[in-house]
């Protein structure tokens, strides 16, 4: 009985999170289209609903009604499984993201480690999709994606490690608690501003995270101009929509993690402005980061494969290592 009730409780939370992610994707897709439109002096969607607000819903309905094509040459089981794997692993990240003081689905004591682990499963799903499609575009996209995501996980982990060293805990709420002072206070200020090395770590994290979620300028796995659509070339209808959903869910998750680790999470921005504490402040910070991700996408061209690798192995990883040592020395000397 105890087990059953806790199972139901978990299902309710999962359903709530799923609803949140769906809503998020609807908003973010529209936001992205609007941002890109304004940056290119266009007006963006505005026909469906007031100011085009229902455009994504219309698109989602269209995708639902589309024919579900599974190529005869495809590896049927893997082909069907891949989008679920990608979506589930990017969805599972939300379980450990603290939205507010008590708004966290599961405050496990290895929160950030769990996030790192579960988000790596996305690579598996993408390779599975590329392989199962039995198409050269998809396979090339998947291979690129694997190389990219595996490489960029290193600087990502190293930059997160510097935060963990500083806080001394893997628990997400502890990391937020260590930054409860806000932006400028002497004690417990944002980890971003704690010392110059963590400041740098934030940018390393952000660049690697961009690459992890396959966003421009690191969108080689789905480079339209070269690979049609990359790993999801052969997918149609709702299966494609799952990849799409996962991309936007990832974008939010990555920004939310950046906010939690470096920008104070749900704790307030400035002491005294209590209305910015909790969920509103969190949402504002995450929205700003999401906007920056979109902003970068509509500004920068895509990197070449060799450039991608050189950015990671020649620049990010050495700097991240140096940075990690720097944080360690800083802690030894000043704390």
């Amino acid at each position: 009985m105890e087990l059953l009730s806790s199972l139901i409780f978990m299902l309710v939370i999962a359903a709530a999170l799923l609803g949140f992610v769906m809503l998020l994707a609807l908003i973010l897709v529209l936001a992205e289209r609007k941002v890109s439109a304004y940056m290119q002096d266009r007006v963006g969607p505005r026909r469906v609903g007031p100011f085009g607000s229902l455009q994504t819903i219309a698109d989602a309905i269209k995708l639902l009604l589309k024919e579900d094509i599974i190529s005869l040459q495809a590896d049927r089981k893997l082909f069907i499984l891949a989008p679920y794997l990608v979506f589930v692993s990017s969805f599972a990240v939300f379980a450990a993201i603290p939205f507010g003081r008590n708004l966290i689905a599961s405050d496990i004591n290895i929160g950030i480690l769990y996030i790192m682990a579960i988000s790596s499963v996305v690579v598996l799903g993408i390779i599975m999709a590329g392989w199962a499609s039995n198409s050269k575009w998809a396979l090339l996209g998947a291979m690129r994606s694997a190389a990219q995501m595996v490489s960029y996980e290193i600087p990502l982990a190293l930059s997160i490690l510097s935060v963990i060293m500083l806080v001394g805990s893997l628990r997400m709420q502890d990391i937020v608690g260590a930054q409860s002072g806000g932006l400028f206070s002497a004690q417990n200020r944002w980890i971003l501003l704690d010392n110059p090395f963590t400041f740098l770590a934030f940018f390393i994290y952000f660049i690697s995270a961009l690459s992890e979620v396959n966003r421009t300028p690191f969108d080689l796995p789905e480079a339209e101009s070269e690979l049609v659509a990359g790993f999801h070339t052969e997918y149609s209808g709702m299966r494609f929509a799952l990849f799409f959903l996962a991309e936007y869910a990832n974008m939010f998750a990555v920004s939310a993690i950046a906010v939690t680790l470096f920008l104070g999470g749900w704790s307030g921005i400035l002491p005294g402005y209590t209305f910015l504490n909790g969920v509103p402040g969190f949402v504002i910070k995450v929205s700003v980061l999401v906007f920056v991700i979109m902003w970068l996408r509509w500004t920068l061209p895509r990197l070449r494969v060799d450039q991608l690798m050189s950015v990671c192995w020649k620049y990010l990883i050495p700097i991240a290592f140096f940075n990690l040592i720097g944080v360690g020395v800083w802690i030894l000397i000043f704390d």
């Binding site: 439109a37 304004y38 002096d41 266009r42 902003w295």
Partner: peptide, 10 residues
């Protein structure tokens, strides 16, 4: 690109 966001659309 940020400046361009505030230009009127064409």
């Amino acid at each position: 690109t940020f400046k361009e966001m505030f230009h009127p659309s064409v």
